[in-house]
Amino acid sequence: MNILLSSGASNFVRGVDTSFAVILGISLFFLIGITGVMIYFVIRYRKRHHPEASQIRGNNKLEIIWTVIPTLLVLVMFWYGWTGYRPMRNIPADAIPIKVTAQMWSWNFEYANGKVSDSLVVPLNQAVKLDLFSRDVLHSLYIPAFRIKEDVVPGKNNKMWFIGQEEGSYDILCAEYCGLRHAYMLSKVVVIPEQEYYEWLADTTSVGGDEHPGLTVIKTNACISCHSLDGSRLVGPSFRGIWGRREQVVNPEGEEITVTVDGDYIRRAIYEPNAEVVKGYNKGLMISYKELISEEELTRLTEYLQTLQ
């Protein structure tokens, strides 16, 4: 699959691809031309054929020509780059706002009606505005098929927008290095007809479904990017069998103490994650979820962990 062949999945594809064509076209001309002339000279003026070199010291006319022409050409390229880019910064007032929250290593999309999704679902041929927030470090939301990318910076509300012009599902990649599972911080943008979109948006029951409400809490907060449910070791300890386990932890004084994982410990580990870090895992990678997970949700989550034996 060569995405340069896809014809306009978003409203920016044409402008960006035109800039590519102009810049790469001029570049190819110079690459082939200069390399060709260089090889020609080396063959034509090799010692055997041309035993006496001419000591030409320069030529002001030529210097002016090959200063002025490249200057004009780069200004042309700048202009194409700018005009292809300008619409990306002019967000239409009626664009549908969607709040994007990035964290290690998951994407979360929240719609105006409160619906939350882990993939970005958007209506065909409508402007969509993304408000970008990060909970921890730098990320970058990149949709290659749409030719757009904007960094997600903690403490800052960056914005981007687009119009999906072709139905389909396209990759969302994280383009700014964000640690261990950077390469797995993937999602999809799904472009569907308007009617279907509003039906999907109105259906707020689908989140969770029959699953344990505690598992829903775990999924919506992306706990599983770092804590597996199957016992495998990721960035943090696995949730499988965690209830009642005796863990060596390092307390704020730097001492190693043994704790038994119970409701109290889980509460501390979620609200003050860096106070007692399980030995062998890194401090500072997990943020506090005090503002994000309510007492009620915490209870559900704790209940669920007890079932994961």
């Binding site: 700018w82 880019y85 990306m88 990149y142």
Partner: peptide, 17 residues
């Protein structure tokens, strides 16, 4: 010459990082 692609705004947004 590939640096020119990185220097132009529209194309850099796509190929950055």
């Amino acid at each position: 010459l590939t640096g020119l692609v990185n220097g132009a705004l529209a194309t850099d947004v796509h190929v950055h990082d």
